[in-house]
């Protein structure tokens, strides 16, 4: 503060190291606060003691919380350590990942199809898509899973053939439908409804002029969608869909309804066998979910960066680049401060 208010050197004997100010500047008596030469002086940054104090307080609080987490016996970190990579937990983790991966891909594909149907010129397709989205957004996922799980009791066989006509090929459904498949189908059906709205919003976010330009150039319809509209729509789709995906990761914890134990299901199951370890088990699940979400967020950052080509004049820096830049400015600033 004091630096900024009081110039280091008296005005009329302007520092000799500076480029000589033009005499015109010196002749009229200048007011005391006006700088001697405004041309190429570096501005001394404003000091902010308040910010330093709040930062310090925040850091102390954070340290206390971490210390509390580490030392409170309630969390039983030794048991956390025991459970963290137990086969039963990693098996559950694999189920979570498998179900999420399949459902994310199938859900997105279904969502694209539904979104295209919703935006198509056929009123029948539009209506079917609307009804599907309406239905699956209304029905709780648990009910969908429960229904699918007991589907085989309602329909013993699935057959291929002319609808309402003779069939050529029969499946015994209870053999076809593994628990994993039921879970994936259930989550995908549900996910597709939400993905459809995300994709539709993305497509609508593409400027009408882009559609017109593509049409005016006579680009084939498929090319218009795949190369012109979709890449631009993805810019809007990716963040929302990743959000959806993170919800899906945790949504998989409902798959115990189809007798499949994912990460959270395994934790619950072990919690009942080892009631003394419920808290560390819940922490294990939490840490795994934090890891999964973090990985997805990192992937999201780079995917978004990829699809922002052309939309921004310069790409945003990666976290590493930002960290490096931040450190450099900090070092420069510290050097400058210590020099004065």
């Amino acid at each position: 503060m004091s630096d900024a208010l009081a110039p280091a050197v008296p005005l009329d004997t302007a520092s000799p190291s500076d480029t000589d100010p033009p005499p015109a500047h010196r002749n009229p008596p200048v007011t005391a606060t006006a700088p001697a030469s405004g041309s190429s002086q570096r501005v001394v940054p404003l000091r902010n003691p308040g910010r330093w104090i709040t930062s310090a307080v925040a850091l102390v609080l954070l340290a206390q919380i971490v210390h509390g987490l580490a030392t409170n016996p309630f969390y039983q970190w030794d048991r956390f350590h025991y459970w963290f990579a137990r086969p039963v937990i990693t098996d559950g983790l694999v189920v979570t990942l498998e179900v999420t991966a399949y459902s994310a891909v199938l859900g997105l594909l279904g969502g694209v199809v539904l979104a295209l149907a919703r935006l198509s010129r056929s009123p029948v397709l539009r209506a079917i898509s609307w009804v599907y989205i309406w239905l699956f957004r209304s029905v709780p996922l648990i009910v969908v899973l429960l229904f699918l799980y007991n589907f085989s009791a309602l329909y013993r066989t699935l057959s291929l053939g002319v609808p309402f006509g003779p069939s050529f090929w029969h499946f015994d459904e209870s053999k076809l439908a593994t628990d994993m498949m039921i879970a994936v189908v259930g989550l995908s059906l549900n996910e597709a409804a939400y993905a459809a709205e995300v994709v539709r919003a993305g497509i609508l976010s593409v400027d009408q002029g882009q559609h017109e330009a593509a049409a005016a150039l006579g680009l084939p319809r498929r090319y218009q969608f795949a190369r012109i509209v979709l890449p631009q729509a993805l810019r809007a789709i990716v963040p929302s869909y990743v959000n959806q995906l993170i919800g899906l990761v945790k949504g998989t914890s409902l798959v115990f309804y189809v007798s499949l134990l994912d990460l959270f299901g395994s934790v619950q199951s072990m919690g009942s066998t080892y009631p003394g370890d419920i808290v560390p088990l819940l922490l294990v699940a939490t840490v795994w979910y934090v890891i999964l979400t973090s990985v997805i967020s990192v992937v999201q950052f780079y995917v978004e960066r990829h699809y922002s080509r052309g939309a921004l004049r310069t790409l945003p820096p990666t976290p590493l680049q930002r960290l490096r830049a931040g450190l450099t400015t900090l070092i420069v600033r510290i050097r400058r401060e210590t020099a004065t």
Binding site: E212, A214, I228, P231, Q232, R309, G310
Partner: peptide, 16 residues
């Protein structure tokens, strides 16, 4: 349409 060129007021270049 391939045989008719069209130039828009707002250019409508493909930004990506």
């Amino acid at each position: 349409r391939g045989r008719i060129g069209f130039v828009f007021q707002n250019f409508n270049l493909f930004p990506h």
